[in-house]
Structures are given as structure tokens and as C-alpha cells.
Design a binder for these strands. Structure first.
Length: 271
DNA sequence: CAACGGACCTGCCTGC
DNA sequence: TGCAGGCAGGTCCGTT
């Protein structure tokens, strides 16, 4: 159930184990993901070595010495694990077996994930081409947010969740960042000052950074028999806390819907 | 262009 | 206990 911190934690967990390793065999059990797993995946990957595992937004990029990059997205319910994992379950779609004996497995019950190949620069791939800056990129600034916000009329929560504006801010961390910066999720983005949007930028960076740091502390558990990456306990201030007292002012946290997504905020701390 | 709603799927929880 | 309904951390795509 990955947002950017989970994807980054996964990347850091697997990269040291498979970088430099040769793909000996690819087993595809179920091709049905968001898009069908390409028929030629097995034949084109077998024999290549992984030279790097990168990330762009929530996409993982497995770069190989054959000039081919495998693009992998975990969707809503996907996870990667390093083996040995035991017998494959019904939602274990793919295995990659490496020459060193390591096995990487992708599980995805809801099948919103994706596995694709590209032989070109993956940044030019249609799925990645129009993505906004990484949250930790110096180009993601308050001015960047403000410049876009003044020309748009959506709720600010929808703006920060728009991958063309900045990548990696999913529903949980959008809620958290808006709480931290004291902005109501529903506020029209063009009616927020540059100063407050700058605060929102800082909050986005902080909330993602600290989640990644917490994930890092459990990385040692990444290789486990049951396979699931070590999900860390999140310290959430508003997400999922409808009706519970605000941790700052004790006012009950409210829950509304914005663009079909659950939204949580404190009616006194956030204006 | 921007905004919006629907679509893709399964699992899990709630309430009748 | 069974079943319907609602909800879930993503994001693409078609329509207006």
C-alpha cells in the first residue's frame, strides 16, 4: 500500500541485494495487472544484469546492462519481497530469480500495479514524461507551487496530489502535510498566499522525509520469510483519526471527501 | 488546457 | 452465519 516513502523504503531494501546480479529466470504467474505484463518480459530480461534500481515518483526503475529498463509500479496493494519466500500465493504475480540465489517476488492483490519494459530513457516514457519534480529536488519550491496554484482552481489537496505538480504525495501524506502547514484541504489553491504555499512545500518535504527515515529503521527486516517489506508504524496526526481529538487543540478531527478521497483535518488548526 | 467522474481489482470490515 | 454495501495508501483515460 505504497506511497512514496514505502516505495523508497522498498527500493533501498532490495537494491543492495540485486544490483550487479544477473537475472537467471523470470516467472510470470499472472499477467493481469493494470496493463498485461508484456509477453516478451521473460525473454527480454533473462540473462541481463541489474545495474541500478532507481525511483521516479512511485515508479521503480530496474536498469539493466542490456539497455533495457523495467518499470514497476506497486499500485495500491503491491509489494516486493526478497526470498526465499516459500510457495507462491494466489496474488504473487511474478518472481525474478537472480544468479546469486536471491529471489525477488511481486505480490499485488488488487492488481493496480504494473510491470513494463522500455529500451529508451525511461524518463521519456509516456508514464514518466509529464511528472513534476521530486519532492526532494531543489526545483520543488514554494514559488513553484505558487506559480501553478494561481492558475488553477482545484482544492489545494488535489493540487499537492497532482503528480504533474510534485510527485509522491499520496492521500495520507497530503492530509498530514496540510495539517502541518495549517491549511484547509478544501481551500481553493489560487486563494492561498505564496507564503503559506511555501509552508506547505516545507511540510510535504518534512512529512515524506521523516516517513522514509522511519522506514529506514526497519530495513533490516526487509528480507523475511513471509516476504512483506517491513512496514513501519506511521505517526499520523490526522489521517484516519475522524472524531478523535486534534493532537494540538483537542478539537475533534473532521472527515470529508475531496475528489472521492477521504480527507481529514482539524477545523480550528487548519484555515 | 483544466476539471471531473469512471474505470481497473480484491480484501476486509460493518451492519442488517 | 450470510450477504450486501462501503471503503481502501493510485492514477490513467474519456468526456465536458
Amino acid at each position: 500500500m505504497p506511497e512514496l516513502p514505502e516505495v523508497e523504503t522498498t527500493r533501498r531494501g532490495i537494491a543492495p541485494h540485486i544490483t550487479g546480479q544477473r537475472i537467471q529466470e523470470v516467472r510470470v504467474r499472472h499477467r493481469g495487472l493494470r496493463w498485461p505484463v508484456p509477453d516478451e518480459l521473460e525473454s527480454r530480461l533473462t540473462g541481463l544484469s541489474v545495474v541500478a534500481v532507481d525511483r521516479r515518483g512511485k515508479y521503480l526503475l530496474f536498469r539493466t546492462d542490456g539497455g533495457i529498463t523495467m518499470i514497476l509500479h506497486l499500485g495500491m496493494s503491491g509489494s516486493l519481497s526478497l526470498g526465499p519466500q516459500g510457495p507462491a500465493g494466489p496474488h504473487d504475480h511474478l518472481d525474478w530469480l537472480f544468479s546469486g540465489g536471491v529471489r525477488l517476488r511481486m505480490r499485488d492483490p488488487r492488481r493496480f500495479g504494473a510491470v513494463l519494459l522500455t529500451e529508451n530513457d525511461p524518463m521519456d516514457h509516456p508514464l514518466l514524461r509529464n511528472l513534476g519534480p521530486e519532492p526532494f529536488d531543489p526545483r520543488f519550491t514554494g514559488e513553484h507551487l505558487y506559480g501553478i496554484a494561481k492558475a488553477r482552481r482545484v482544492a489545494v489537496k488535489q493540487l499537492v496530489m497532482d503528480a504533474r505538480v510534485v510527485v509522491g504525495v499520496g492521500n495520507i501524506y497530503a492530509n498530514e502535510a496540510l495539517f502541518l502547514s495549517g491549511i484547509r484541504p478544501k481551500r481553493p489553491c489560487h486563494r492561498i498566499s505564496a507564503n503559506r504555499l511555501s509552508g506547505l512545500r516545507d511540510a510535504v518535504v518534512e512529512v515524506l522525509q521523516s516517513a522514509i527515515e522511519q522506514g529506514g529503521t526497519t530495513l533490516r527486516d526487509f528480507v523475511r520469510e513471509d516476504g512483506r517489506p517491513g512496514y513501519f508504524a506511521r505517526r499520523l496526526r490526522v489521517y484516519g483519526r475522524a472524531g478523535l481529538p486534534c493532537l494540538v487543540c483537542a478539537e475533534p478531527i473532521r472527515q470529508i471527501r475531496i475528489g472521492q478521497r477521504s480527507t481529514f483535518f482539524c477545523p480550528t488548526c487548519q484555515t
